[in-house]
């Protein structure tokens, strides 16, 4: 079966609602289908990637560490909109470092997260076949 380009757009903050957590579950299941997978974090979606999340005081599942597993699932195209970060007073340093091993480059460890402008992200959206929003 021909492979399609799937884009997951994440615009919601974690913890206040379940969308972010259940979206990540789709990404992990979807990774097994050998499609081309891209994730975009826009608006409050960027909060999903913040470091130091600890849900022990609210008794919900802390799924943020699961993002680190994405590289093992060959999900290595992760785009964060610069404008969304800046509006929230954040930078890439505030985000969980996500990496993957590049099989085309002697398994060198590389950054999965790319901070891109709105204009670049608009192009990325246009290049997809299937767009999923949660």
């Amino acid at each position: 079966m021909a492979s399609k380009k799937f884009l997951y757009i994440n615009r919601k903050a974690p913890h206040g609602s379940i969308y972010a957590q259940e979206s990540l579950e789709v990404v992990l299941i979807g990774a097994a289908f050998e499609q081309n997978v891209t994730l975009a974090f826009i608006d409050d979606g960027v909060y999903q990637l913040l470091q130091n999340q600890d849900t022990s005081g609210i008794g919900t599942k802390n799924f943020a560490p699961t993002f680190r597993a994405l590289g093992d699932y060959d999900v290595s195209q992760i785009y964060v909109e610069r404008e969304s970060l800046e509006l929230r007073g954040l930078s890439k340093d505030d985000l969980i470092p996500l990496t993957y091993e590049d099989e085309d480059d002697d398994w060198a460890e590389k950054d999965s997260i790319h901070v891109v402008s709105s204009l670049e992200l608009a192009d990325i959206i246009e290049q997809q076949d299937v767009i999923l929003n949660f």
Binding site: E25, V26, I29, F33, V130, L132, F134
Partner: peptide
């Protein structure tokens, strides 16, 4: 059924539309 059915629907269909 499982979440795989969502991905499979995206693969099979010409258009996927999300309501939420």
């Amino acid at each position: 059924s499982g979440l795989g059915q969502l991905i499979d629907a995206g693969i099979q269909a010409d258009r996927l539309i999300v309501f939420g």
